[in-house]
Design a protein around this nucleic acid. Sequence first.
DNA 1: TTGTACGCGTTATCAA
DNA 2: TTGATAACGCGTACAA
Lengths: 338, 338
Amino acid sequence: MPVTIHDVAREAGVGIGTVSRVVNNRPYVKPATRERVLAAINKLQYKPDPIARSMILKRTGAIGVIVPFFTRFFFMEVLKGVDAALTRRGYELVLYNISNKAQQDRYFAGLPMLRRVDGLLALSLTPDEDDARRLHEVGLPVVLVDAYSPLLTSIVVNNIDGSYLAIKYLIENGHRRIGFINGIIEGNFNRPFNPANDRLIGLHRALGEAGLLFEPELVLETEWSRQGGREAALRLLALPRPPSAIFTASDIQAIGVLEAAKALNIVVPDELSVIGFDGIEMAEFLDLTTMVQPMYQMGELGVKKLMERIEHPGSPPELLRLDTRLREGHTVKKICSA
Amino acid sequence: MPVTIHDVAREAGVGIGTVSRVVNNRPYVKPATRERVLAAINKLQYKPDPIARSMILKRTGAIGVIVPFFTRFFFMEVLKGVDAALTRRGYELVLYNISNKAQQDRYFAGLPMLRRVDGLLALSLTPDEDDARRLHEVGLPVVLVDAYSPLLTSIVVNNIDGSYLAIKYLIENGHRRIGFINGIIEGNFNRPFNPANDRLIGLHRALGEAGLLFEPELVLETEWSRQGGREAALRLLALPRPPSAIFTASDIQAIGVLEAAKALNIVVPDELSVIGFDGIEMAEFLDLTTMVQPMYQMGELGVKKLMERIEHPGSPPELLRLDTRLREGHTVKKICSA
DNA sequence: TTGTACGCGTTATCAA
DNA sequence: TTGATAACGCGTACAA
């Protein structure tokens, strides 16, 4: 039913080789012939079959993006950058949404998509030792964004610094009792560049530098969600000596904190300071002070690096670090200036 | 380099046909033979090449979702439903993000993805006459969600009713001067089921029913964005006789209205009532009163209908209508109860 | 400059 | 129950 290259060849009275050459803009076709072929193509509305084409070319023109819950704002922002970079290069985007560990394993280990995509971009997902090695061996180009593996090109943000700066900012503004609502530390927390773990480390560093005690009761770990943030905040604020400021590992959790404060009639920032992490759009609207990650750029850079790996499959894995920056909103009270 | 069906056949000492039968769990394979093949497959870590497979099967196991700016909250919610339904059925999701009309044409008209996906789900995008006919002729299964074409299966929400109910709700609560911030009416606004246009119609109906005058100066049309909503609100509120309530065609615009109110020190709902449309998560957090669309279900239903079309390519296009419902938050003041 | 034949990795057909 | 062999639609040597 669909029109094939043979139909075009017959229509134009040439061989399929010639049609192929015309379609792919290759030399050695007499202008007159080219015209005839073009006319036939147009008349028959011929479109080369991408499947058959990638069968022989061994490339699909698509890259896979594997993300846990693409619906989280952080990922949305990164995806924007990914999409823009991909579209610019004429690549298609196959989205693999992971909602549990089993699925993650299926994708990383099973590699069922082998050959369906020319490369893989993983967001906030760390393949385990074995998977990483296999990916590396199979030769499927992979880039990790917001995750790290020594065997794979990884793009990470400086979470330790970001967290450190956030806490330092609070301390400089006179806060001494600081709550920290962290996200769940997924996977092996001993590994370097685990976002949640690194943010905890940053906290320690800032506290230590200021000579403040680390108080375990002020540190909670929740889902990366509004509900998680809210519930944790309620617990922190119910403490005999509640914190004067709360730092969260993500903006969405910070929003949960704001929600909790509202429910308790606690005024932000007068009675409670809040600082988030990410820099999602919603945070801007809420005037939330936050550590901004370059999410869009992470997506763009991820694609760029992935393209490089597709071009040069053999090249050694790289590690790229990006920085965060503070965006001041109106949710942090300056108890006393430093 | 990659191991093929031939390698497995050789390893197991059988023909490729047998291997194929084993791989696809088909009958007529002696248990002993099956075992041998399975062993070979396992030993060689053989994975069938999906490309070659779909070349002959004529199906890719992927469906394309074409959406204008997937980053808008409304689409996110719909996409969640789409993704869930697709994952459940083992389909892959190819995302086509459209950011301008040219791209839309390229996808609808050019059909370059012909054969790359088994079906197409379009969100809030209406192919024009020609494209619709071509899609229909080519036989690529298509389902429109939040858009309508007589030639294609379409899933729409009852926007007229939704808008009517929203306005009626405001009127019942004593509002007489109501601003309406609509989204841009894309494409041909004469067509039925154009969301923006239908919401305008609903306004007319409710006003008419209540014997209120339609005042053009109170109706603005903006981008479906926070900025759009904010700017429009600023204009409405600068009117000599500003409205006591504003209805927006989307929650994100309503949030822009809240932003404008805050900037002007206008208290919501005491001095200004706001009602949105969509029911996105952020609206819930902000306690925004809004007309809720069944976004998740729209996505799910879209996939379901698309699957049906894939099974029965010849079946006539359907038109499915879903209803909206009011979710009361705390952004509408009851001036007087009805 | 052009046409033919072959190969890509599968599934389907059919004779054995 | 099995194994050759023919498609599928295209790109590409290679021969003409």
